[in-house]
Structure formats: structure tokens, C-alpha cells
Amino acid sequence: MEDRISNLPDPILCHILSFLPTEEAIATSVLCKRWKPLWRSVPTLEFFCHSRFITTELFLQSVNVVILSRDQNQPIHKFQLTYNFCDSVDPVNFELWVNTTVKRSLQHLHLYLRFHSCLTRPANLSSIFSCTTLVVLKLYQINLELEFKTLPKLLRTDIQISEHTYFLLKVVNNAKVLYLEIDDDIDEVTDPYFSSMFHNLTNVELVYRYHINDWSQIVKLLQHCPMLQDLVIKQPECCVLDSVQGGEVGDWKFPPSVPECVLLHLKSCYLDDYRGTPDEFRFARYIMQNGRFLKRMTICSYVEFQKVLENGKETYQKDRFNCLKILFTINLDDKQQQ
């Protein structure tokens, strides 16, 4: 049987291999002589480190060998690293990998650390902000020593912020899409993280690790995003009824002014794991009353749990009356046309 795939040009084969993790792309080199050098020119590097399968030293050595063995004349469009070890390591290897890839027309950079404490010191990754080709930047559990330079072509930024990963968002203030995961040790999101205007931002997704107690923080954030069109707010999925009842008393009041984006640009708002507290209700009402061009409001309820006694021990069970996750969407187009 004729091997038609092997007869394809190198650029097409490398593009096919770019959809595989780097380890699997390298494994194709044993197929035949035609495939042996191809992995060195694949424009994507994806490394997934799991302590169940490999030691820290072996993983660091493997990534170094792969990066140094590549065809130095070929670009690297995407570099993704997922590091799940608990061991503390010097970030010198991470600095070397990033400094090398950003010089190769890098477009997508994804760095995921499972534990912020796995690095013995903050990584010096200032070379990221000299990368004029970067389009997507995703950083999780990364504590950066920053240089205040903007990335001219940046379109999307995914950031996790906590007290351990201090990241000033002003360095990515020209992004159009922002995914922000907010840890439960952060009380103030807008200051110092939002210290400048985001004039290009049209899509924001806020994922909270805790339940929002101060919705005025969201309004302050919106004031920094004058062109925002799509807003998504997610809270933790599962709540205990006791904690919900303890947070029923709300004191959030409508602010005296309405952010520009809500008045002139906001088209959709999505509230996930809505609990129906007074403050949540007021915020949803605030958006619907002031969003002149709002077309869709989506509210999704959460799954409730009750505390019960079982064999003398306290356990949590789903409330049989509220165990279904209810999703409803209000389309406002018809109302505006009337």
C-alpha cells in the first residue's frame, strides 16, 4: 500500500505533528527515515510533566535536549509547559527555555505551575515583554519580575492572580480577551492589579475561587474596560446551604455612575453559579437596567448541598429540590425593537 502521507511536503507534515504533544511528535521519528528529522522543525513545543512518570531531573534534562536539538532556523510558534512537581527547583531552566523560544517568532506562550512554591525564587522572564510577535499569553502560578513594556500584538491573556503570584495587568493592557482566575486570598482585585485602562478589551471572564462578597469590585473593574462587550463571571460551583444563608444580608448599592462599557458597548453578560443573594440580584438588575445595548443576559444557578447527619456523622448531600442546574437566558433584542 502506498504511503501517501509520507509523500506530503515537510511543512504540511510538520503542521500535522504540531497538534501532538512534543513527546508523541518525537516518537514518529521511528516510523522511517523520512520522518526521523521532522520533529526538529515542528513549530509547537508542548511539555506535560507528571511526577508519576518521570523525575524532576529527567524532565528538566529532556526539555533542554529537545530545545537544543531543534533546527535553529525554524520558528517556534507555541511553547506550552505544564509542571506538576512539588520539588523546589531553581528557575534557571525555565528562564533559558522562555528566553530561547521568544527569539523564534513565538506567538503562544503557556506556562502552568501546579505549586507556586516549586520555584526557589521568582523567575526572571522579562524577555517575554520584548517579544513583539506574542499573540496569546497564559500564566498560572507564575510570579514575575516585571518590566513595564506592552506586547503590541497581544490578543488574549489568561492569568491567575493570588498573593503568591503578583502580576500587574498593566503590562498586558492592550489585550482584547482577558481570562482572570482570582484566588481566595485576594481581597482587592482592582488595586493594584488594574492600575491602567484597557482600551482594547472586549471580552472578560472572571473566575473566582471564592464567593463574591463585594460586587462593587466588579463595577470598579468595568470602569477600566470602556469597550467591553462580553462579560462572564463564575463563582465556585458547589456551596453548602449554611454558608449561603450566612451571606444573605447584602449591602451593595448601585454606584452613582455607570461604567462607559455598560452604557454603550456591553452586549452579553453571563453569571454562573448564581445563588440568588440580594447583592447578586442587585448586580444582575444593575446590568439589565443600564445596559442600553445589552442583547443577552444569562444566569445559571448552582447545585445546593445540605448538611445532614448520617450514622452520627455530618455529611453533605445534594438538596433534592435544587439538585438540577437551571440555566435561563433572556434575549433583549425583541424588547429593544418594540
Rank of each mutant, 00 (worst) to 15 (best):
F283T: 00
F19L: 11
Q61G: 12
A284K: 01
F194D: 01
L38H: 09
D185N: 12
F148P: 02
L146A: 04
W215Y: 14
C300I: 15
Q337P: 05
K78H: 11
Q245A: 08
I161C: 04
V136Q: 06
H15A: 14
V189S: 01
M288L: 11
I16Q: 07
Q160T: 15
W35D: 15
V89W: 08
S195L: 02
V171E: 00
S127P: 04
Q338P: 06
G312Q: 01
I54N: 09
Y210Q: 15
S301P: 01
V240A: 12
F85M: 13
P259I: 03
F281T: 12
L294Y: 02
Y274Q: 01
V66Q: 08
R296G: 00
T298E: 09
D158N: 13
K335V: 15
D230F: 10
R209L: 12
Y274K: 00
L111M: 13
L109F: 04
R285K: 14
I326V: 14
V177F: 07
I5T: 11
R275E: 10
T150A: 09
C300A: 08
F19C: 13
I26Y: 09
V308H: 03
R114M: 12
V98H: 07
D185Y: 04
T202F: 01
L271S: 03
I76S: 03
K325V: 13
E24M: 10
Y179E: 08
D319T: 07
P9V: 10
S301T: 15
S105D: 11
E188W: 05
L109E: 02
F59H: 13
K253D: 15
S127L: 05
F321T: 10
P255S: 04
S268H: 02
Y286G: 02
V207A: 06
L201G: 00
K220Q: 14
N203G: 01
L222F: 06
V249S: 10
L154P: 01
